[in-house]
Simulated assay, not measured.
Amino acid sequence: MDFSFLYKGFILGFSVAAPVGPIGVLCINRTLHKGYASGLTSGLGAATADLIYGCIAGFGLTIVSNFLVGQQIWFQVIGLAFLFYTGIKTLTRNTSQAKFSTSYNKGLLNDYTTTFLLTITNPLTILFFLAVFAGLGLSNTKQDKFASILLVSGVFIGSAAWWLLLSGFTHKLKKMISDSILKRIDLFSGLLILFFAFILLYDLITG
């Protein structure tokens, strides 16, 4: 049994999660406002969506993957709506006393669900995983099933590890941030999320 696929999946998952995107911005912002648990839970929502798409690609569920890719426009529209809503909500959030909040567990299901939906509405992720599986020489055979399980599991663990580190580091800095700085962070975060939304809107219009 070749357990190297678990390691490869870990590196892949960590690398995919690390670049700054709307999920990363949300993770940081929610950690500052609601605590470590909220930021980590937000990240795990995205990691779960990646796990699902990885399973679809890894186990040859071509009917499902073809359907999702074929309906990508509708998924992108849903994702666009979520991004605009989240960006506006971030811009208009009341930051008063936010950094002293102790309600870490408040709304964790909502935190998890929103990032899960933001990630799952990007079915092109399947194409990424299909390319990875093909590049590693994994075909839809029984011998490759165990390797596929290890790779997909590694992706989830690697992604979760990144969100664990990001949330933990942000939480450590939380007490050093004043309300005025937090307000600026909210402004920047909201504008950045809206920027990602406009990029998606541009792709929809020109695509």
Rank of each mutant, 00 (worst) to 15 (best):
S4L: 10
S4K: 14
L6K: 05
Y7P: 03
Y7E: 12
K8L: 13
K8Q: 09
V16H: 07
A17L: 10
G24C: 08
L26I: 12
I28L: 13
L32V: 02
Y36D: 04
T41C: 12
G43N: 04
G45H: 03
A47G: 05
A49Y: 08
D50A: 05
D50C: 04
L51M: 12
I52S: 00
Y53S: 01
I56E: 09
L61S: 04
L61C: 07
L61W: 14
L61D: 08
T62P: 01
T62I: 11
V69Y: 07
G70M: 03
Q72F: 05
Q72L: 10
I73Y: 12
W74V: 10
I78H: 10
A81S: 10
A81E: 11
F82T: 05
F84G: 02
G87E: 00
T90H: 03
L91T: 08
T92D: 03
T95A: 11
S96Q: 14
K99W: 00
Y104R: 13
K106W: 08
L108T: 06
Y112F: 15
T113G: 06
F116W: 04
L118P: 05
L118D: 03
I120V: 12
L124D: 12
I126A: 06
F128G: 08
F129G: 03
A131K: 14
L138R: 13
L138W: 06
T141M: 04
K142R: 07
K142Q: 14
K142C: 05
Q143E: 15
Q143M: 06
Q143I: 07
A147P: 02
S148C: 04
L150C: 05
L151V: 03
V155P: 02
G158V: 11
A160T: 05
L164N: 00
L165N: 01
S167L: 03
F169Y: 13
K172F: 10
L173H: 04
I177E: 03
I177K: 01
D179H: 12
D179K: 10
L187Y: 09
F188M: 14
L191N: 09
L194I: 15
A197Y: 07
F198W: 12
I199R: 14
I199N: 13
Y202A: 10
L204W: 02
I205N: 06
